[in-house]
Amino acid sequence: MVFRRAFAGLVAAFMVSGCAVAPEPAPAEDTAYIFSSFRGDGETGLHLAYSLDGLTWTALRGDASYMTPEVGGQLMRDPCIIKGPDGRYHMVWTTGWWENNIGIAHSSDLISWTDQTRLDVMAHEPGVMNSWAPEIFYDEETTEYVIFWSSSVPDRFPETDDRGDIWSTTGKSLNHRIYFVTTRDFETFSETQLFYDGGFVSIDASLLKDGDHYIMFLKDETKRPEPEKNIRIAVADQAQGPYGPASAPFSPEGVWVEGPTAVTINGVHYVYFDAYMEHRMRAMRSGDLEHWEDISDQITFPEGIRHGSVLPVSRDVLDRLIAAQ
């Protein structure tokens, strides 16, 4: 089986956040973790929390926003932050429910942010319905930033057409696949391309490097004949693919989830996701990415948190964030 062959030999390999550049090796006691997230529909903007163990998460700045949305549909959903090789933090987010664009901003300290810019990633697709859950990943092999998201383009992928879904107020299909662009300077961008088509409706992809492999977590958004609403994994040898067949779901059976993000702490892989029907975050833990333990009852997050991304940082960075509250 392609999926199992791809995972052979990956046990105990080092993994970082689903949208983070691998940090320099450091003692565990010198590492902290920042969780970027949103509240409600994203009206209040960027919220940050921190943890020292990946289980207990504490809101920073009293859970007040670090940046409010100004571009696109003026929401700030699904914020994903990485630290690039330039030493700066780069963030992308969903600007609205029915937009053809995403938002981008940059920071040197996670506190003060540049002016927000709007990137019209799907403006070339007439009638495109949305640009959801963008994430950013630095491809060390090509020295490019890869920005990817999910969009539904009317009448594309008819074999998995979800026409008539409750989200479609126009009668057009919601038939998402993952698309991407690349950039080196955030001024010029490649043309939009299809990133992943696993043969099913998919959103909320999150990418990370694990040894010689690249792991994509993504939500199966299939609604018919029965809803899936779970998290699966695909594997590639290069960051920009091609990615192989998706694994079987590993998120809790019967629980509708979205927005996965992953981090490795002391050799153990943690995957957090938004159990949106339960109005809480949940998590799974694994030592080999095949056998999973539900640790949802062991984690605590700020009230009202919605999904985002995990970013490993040094304790110095966390100390400055706490001091600036």
Rank of each mutant, 00 (worst) to 15 (best):
T94V: 04
E258G: 12
V271K: 07
L110S: 01
A20R: 03
S251E: 05
D197V: 06
K83C: 14
S309Q: 15
E144T: 14
S37R: 14
F157A: 13
D165F: 11
F35D: 04
A324L: 01
G103D: 04
A324C: 06
S152H: 09
S17D: 10
G72R: 03
G254R: 03
R285L: 13
R315Y: 00
H279A: 12
A12C: 09
Y179G: 02
Q193Y: 00
P69I: 07
P134S: 04
D274K: 08
S309V: 01
V92A: 02
A123F: 00
I104S: 01
T170A: 14
E125D: 09
D53T: 12
D237F: 03
F250Q: 03
A234W: 01
Q116V: 03
Y33F: 15
D294H: 09
E43W: 06
D185E: 02
W132R: 07
D120L: 08
P126Q: 06
E290S: 12
I299H: 06
D78H: 07
D212C: 01
S247C: 09
I81W: 00
A12Q: 13
A275M: 11
A20W: 00
T94R: 14
S251M: 04
T114C: 00
A323Y: 01
H176L: 09
D212P: 01
L321E: 07
M129A: 10
C19G: 15
V317L: 08
F273T: 11
E125W: 12
P79H: 02
R156G: 00
R282P: 00
D204R: 05
E290K: 14
L318C: 12
L311K: 04
A324H: 13
F301R: 10
S202D: 02
T114Q: 01
G164K: 12
R4M: 15
F186Y: 07
G199Y: 06
E43V: 12
S17M: 04
I147C: 08
I104Q: 02
S314Q: 08
D161R: 14
T56I: 13
E144A: 04
D288P: 10
F137H: 14
N266Q: 15
H90Y: 03
D155E: 15
A26D: 04
R282S: 10
R163K: 15
H106W: 02
D155F: 14
I136R: 02
M216H: 05
A8Y: 10
G127A: 09
T142E: 13
S286G: 06
G18I: 03
S206M: 02
Y270E: 02
G72S: 04
T143Y: 05
G198E: 05
